[in-house]
Design a protein around this nucleic acid. Sequence first.
DNA 1: ATAAATTTATTGGTGCACAAACAATTGAGG
DNA 2: CCTCAATTGTTTGTGCACCAATAAATTTAT
Lengths: 160, 160
Amino acid sequence: MENTQQKIELLMRCIKALTNETSRNPSKYVCYKLSRVMRKVHRYYEGNLSQYGITPSQFYVLSAVWEKDGLKFKELAKSLEMDGSTLTSILDRLERLELVERRNDPEDRRSLLVFLTEQAKQQISEMAHLAEKLDQEIKERFTEEEFATFERVLEKLSLD
Amino acid sequence: MENTQQKIELLMRCIKALTNETSRNPSKYVCYKLSRVMRKVHRYYEGNLSQYGITPSQFYVLSAVWEKDGLKFKELAKSLEMDGSTLTSILDRLERLELVERRNDPEDRRSLLVFLTEQAKQQISEMAHLAEKLDQEIKERFTEEEFATFERVLEKLSLD
DNA sequence: ATAAATTTATTGGTGCACAAACAATTGAGG
DNA sequence: CCTCAATTGTTTGTGCACCAATAAATTTAT
């Protein structure tokens, strides 16, 4: 009887530990989990993209410009949900790498338009291919349904 | 007949757009989705934790020290999977805020031990309570099974 | 038409995140 | 011992990410 009681207590402690209900460890927080995983995946992309001399964030910007060449700075920032000042600094680096070009908007002198350089146009599809491969590697580790749920939750969280 | 053909083409384009198979938009990449959501959730935590004058990362460090007071710098960095130099700068700020204290390790003069201050001990449980509330708000938006799958995928990604 | 409000991109400042170089200390092998 | 290798934490440098303040241009209101 006592033995049973002890077993029950042990099991309850296990459950609490597993569900992190009373733990003080930060790994119980959604935000912490997200940032940890994001950093890990980011480093993985980073290590692979480094052969092109660019970072993941720079790659996202290039992809967005690739999708719509010559779009406005403002639209670019909006589509990437990125603060304008962050985009400014990324464009500075991409321009120094001669992958991107800023041109004046003939219709609004406050605004500016962003274009890929010829060099970037030649490289970007190869970069995208690499990124897709990395994605595939990640997805392979899960069932389709599992990963679909994962992405659905991400999608829902990115709204609001 | 032609009409049917057109419909099929339209539907196929829809499916491609939905599955992002051929899209150049960066939002198709797992890494991009992760970082976007992470930033969003991070900002949400940040806005709430700001009443205590700390950032999410600082909160994670405080929580980890709260869990095990006086642990070694090295162990702390390892448990948070955080680069040593990052932890150094966070501890600098937490020490300036008088929430944390660095002490020499009597057993190894290279090593140092990290402690919460009295002030931090008084505040940390309230902070943790807030963070749990924020987590709860996020989880409420999904079914239990959905979120469990989400966390399981995160967990699996954070390994290896 | 002109002053005021709004929009657009940049700058400056803070706080991560990480790699590389470094100084101090400890451990191991000769 | 004593040198050489390994470990520990900090510093330095780069790249985001975001806020607040700014300057230039445009729009609105009067």
